[in-house]
Write a protein that binds this DNA or RNA. Structure first.
Lengths: 208, 208
DNA sequence: TAGATTGTTAATCGATTAACAATC
DNA sequence: TAGATTGTTAATCGATTAACAATC
C-alpha cells in the first residue's frame, strides 16, 4: 500500500516546498513544472516524476495549484506534526540552533536544552532554560519532545544518543561527526558539516 | 587523464579520512576494508571500489596502511591547501561557524568576518574583527581568502554571492536556503539545514 | 602452504532522462 | 481548434553489489 519514496526525491521535496511557499506569498496561483524547474535548476521531468509518486495533482495543459501543492508536500513531509525539539549541547552550534528562527516556519519548535557543563545549566538561551543532562529523561517526557538534536563533541555523541533513545525520542538529528548506533526504528539524520566543506575543497582543487 | 570521481564517492572520503585519523591516533597501523566498513556501516566492496578510483594503495592479503591512506585521501580532497575562509553574516550561525574549532584540524582557517549590521562591525568574534561589507573586495584580496561562507538571510544571499565572486573567492559554502547563481567555474556547496530536518520529519511520519 | 584481503570485471539495481499519449 | 502541460512508459545512465583471480 505505502509506496516507497527514494531518498533523492525526499531531499528535493523541501526545495519544492520552500519555492512554493515563496510563490504563494507573491500571490502566484499556478505553476508549471517548467517554471519551478527553472527556479531550482532541476529538470521539469524530474519534478513531475517526483510529484507523480504521490498521485496526480497537476492539471494537464495548465500546471499545478501552488497552494494545494504546497500543502500536499507539507503533509507528505509530515511538517503538520509540529515536532518538538530538544537540543543537547549548548555550545556555539547548539546555541545557534536554539536561536534559529527558520525552524518555526517549518513547524518545528525548540522546547528544551541540555548541557553537561554546570556553568551553563540554569542559564537561558532564547528564553529556554538550560537543563542538566541528568534530568533528561524526565524533562523529555514532560515536554513531549519528539526529536533529539545532538550538538556535543564526537566523543560524547554516542552516550547522548543512548540517553535520548532511552528517554523516548522518535528521531535524532546529529551534528557530531561520528557514526551513531541507534535502533533501526529511530530515524537518524546526520548533518556533518565537514563533508560539504571537504567536497568544496575537492572541487576547488580540481579547477585547473 | 583526470578520472571523474562521483559525488557519492567524494562524500564518503571525509568519512574515511575522519576514521583513519582516529585510528592513527590509536596507533593502528593497518586496516582492512572490512574493518573500516564495519566502523562506518559501509560495505567493504564499496570502500575498495571508492579507493581503487585513485590507484592501488592497499596490499592484497594485508590491508591498507592507515597513515598512508589518510595522507592520500587528504591530498585527493585538497585538504593540504590550508584554505582560508571568510564568513559573511555574523549572526547566530555565522558566529558559531567562526568559533567552530574542527575547521582547523581539517586545514581550514577563518581569516575574515563581514556583516552589514553597523552594531556588529568593529567587534571581535573569536579574535577576528568584524568588517563592514563595503570593505569586502579589498579585505578578501589582502587576506588571501579562498572560500566565502554565506550565513546571511536568504533574501540577501544572492547579493553576497555576487560580491564574493567579484572579490575573487575560489569557492562558496552557502548556508542560506536558496538556489544561488554563480559562475560554473566557482564550486558551490549548499548546506541547507531544512533539508535534513524535513527528511527526518518524513521518516518519523512513516513509522507506523 | 593456507588464509586473508585487495583490485577489477560482470551483474544488478535504482535513478534520471527522453518520449509521447492524454487532456485541459 | 491549437498550444501547453501533465502523467506514465520506455530507454539510458550511473552507482552499488557480487564474484573471483591475483597475491601478500
Amino acid at each position: 500500500m505505502k509506496k516507497i519514496i527514494s531518498q533523492a526525491t525526499i531531499d528535493r521535496l523541501p526545495l519544492y516546498f520552500r519555492t512554493l511557499r515563496l510563490m504563494e506569498s507573491e500571490e502566484i496561483k499556478i505553476i508549471s513544472s517548467d517554471e519551478l524547474g527553472r527556479t531550482l535548476d532541476i529538470t521539469p521531468e524530474q519534478i513531475r516524476k517526483d510529484l507523480a509518486t504521490f498521485g496526480q495533482f497537476g492539471r494537464k495543459g495548465i500546471g499545478y495549484d501552488v497552494h494545494e501543492l504546497k500543502e500536499r508536500i507539507s503533509n507528505i513531509l509530515g511538517l503538520q506534526n509540529c515536532w518538538r525539539l530538544a537540543i543537547v549541547g549548548v555550545g556555539h552550534l547548539g546555541g545557534a540552533l536554539a536561536n534559529y528562527t527558520n525552524f518555526a516556519s517549518l513547524g518545528f519548535s525548540v522546547v528544551a536544552l541540555f548541557d553537561k557543563n554546570k556553568s551553563v545549566v540554569g542559564s537561558e538561551v532564547n528564553g529556554i532554560k538550560v537543563n542538566s543532562i541528568s534530568g533528561m529523561k524526565r524533562i523529555i517526557a514532560s515536554k513531549s519532545v519528539d526529536i533529539g538534536v545532538i550538538a556535543v563533541p564526537a566523543d560524547e555523541a554516542q552516550g547522548v544518543a543512548d540517553l535520548l533513545v532511552a528517554a523516548g525520542v522518535k528521531g535524532i538529528w546529529n551534528f557530531a561527526p561520528i557514526k551513531l548506533n541507534v535502533p533501526s526504528t529511530i530515524p537518524l539524520v546526520n548533518e556533518d558539516l565537514s563533508i560539504g566543506l571537504s567536497a568544496l575543497s575537492y572541487h576547488m582543487s580540481q579547477e585547473s
